[in-house]
Amino acid sequence: MKKLSLALCVAALTAAALLLLQPDLTESPIAAEVNPEGLQPAQSDASGDEQASKPRQSDPPMTTPVWNGANFARALAGTDIDGDLRVDENGLLIMDIQVKDFFDYFFLAVGERTPEEVVAEIKRRIYDRLPAPAADQAMGLLNDYISYQERIRELMAAPLAPAESQNYEYYASVMESTFEQLKSLRRQIFAPDVVDAFFGLDEAYSGYALAVMQVKADAQLSDKEKASQVEALQQKLPAQMRDAHRQAAQRESLTREARRMYREGYSADSVRQALRGRFSDEKAEKIITYYQREEEWRARLGDYQRRKQDIQAAARTDAETIAGLTQLRNSLFTSEELKLVESYDAIERKAAQYDKP
Rank of each mutant, 00 (worst) to 15 (best):
G48C: 08
T326M: 11
E264Y: 13
E203Q: 09
Y290W: 11
Y266T: 08
C9F: 00
R113P: 07
I152R: 02
A46G: 11
D88E: 14
R129N: 08
L130G: 01
K350M: 15
K100T: 09
F198L: 06
A258G: 05
L221E: 03
L142M: 01
Q234I: 02
K3W: 14
S47N: 10
E252Q: 13
A232F: 12
Y148W: 10
L160C: 12
E337G: 08
T26Q: 03
S270M: 11
S173R: 05
P23I: 00
F107K: 09
K224H: 13
A158F: 06
A172T: 07
A239M: 14
E164L: 13
L76Q: 07
S343W: 01
E164D: 15
V119R: 00
T79C: 06
E150N: 15
L332W: 10
G277N: 06
S267Y: 05
D310K: 05
A217E: 01
V341P: 01
R251Q: 14
G48W: 04
V174R: 01
E348G: 09
Y205L: 03
D104R: 13
I287S: 02
K224L: 14
R300S: 14
Q51Y: 09
A346Q: 11
R113E: 05
E225D: 11
E27S: 11
D303P: 00
R256P: 01
V174Y: 06
F198K: 00
Y354I: 15
A70C: 08
A17D: 13
Q181I: 12
T178Y: 02
T321I: 14
Y262I: 08
G324T: 12
M241T: 04
G302Q: 10
A346L: 13
T14F: 06
L332S: 13
V99K: 00
N35I: 02
I122H: 00
E180C: 03
A109V: 08
A248R: 06
F103W: 00
V230E: 07
P357D: 10
